[in-house]
Amino acid sequence: MKRTVPLMIVMVGGILMILQYFIPHQISQTIFAYYTDWTPIILAFALVLGVGSLTRIHSHKIRRKSKNWQYSWAVLIPLYLMPVLAHIWPGSLSGGMDSPSIFHFIFMHVQVPIQATMFSLLAFYIASAAFRAFRAKSALATVLLLSAIIVMLGQVPIGELLGKWFPQTGLWILRYPNLAAKRAIMLGVGFGMLATNLKIIFGVERNWLGGAGK
């Protein structure tokens, strides 16, 4: 019941779904339609797991007064405030200028600027890394460096002004050697995914069972 049935569900579900792809019969299409209809509903509940563990971690920190525990309130308050606000003003979920609401305000004017700025910090760090770590120490490193510089110049208007060959060579690198390298990686990843799919379907890979019960 605890391990065998879930493993059976995986195997039956997996094989059924592979078969339905190759058998476009009415029955298989109906099963497929139900499946795609129901699964998003089931998976919507998975969000509760994330919210639950976030709550557990931060309430634990607050209870134990761990280092920087005060900041945990900054996680927990908006975590529960947002759904409450959305419930009070259901219309606010859709945003828009005509119906300003606190819910939409918090997303647009707190979440968006913070997240966008956090990502933009990387511009500063990549500049620093370019100065400190990007060295032409070997022939291969030099190739990488030259390829990067040509592509960087090729992608901006000033590269075009410095010489037509910058964008042309940059595009050539992207369209041929870059493509070759990325295709090899894609094939490798593709085979890896297929192998993992089969391992999960046939119960060879069972890590997903986790430690819940035996």
Binding site: K2, P6, G13, G14, I15, I200, I201, W208, A212
Partner: peptide, 21 residues
């Protein structure tokens, strides 16, 4: 808690099957 393996198993199996071909 082992009951949570049922929905996880349902999704894992079917998603792997759908994704394979």
């Amino acid at each position: 808690s082992w009951l949570s393996r049922y929905p996880i198993g349902f999704y894992m199996g079917t998603a792997m099957g759908v994704g394979f071909p």
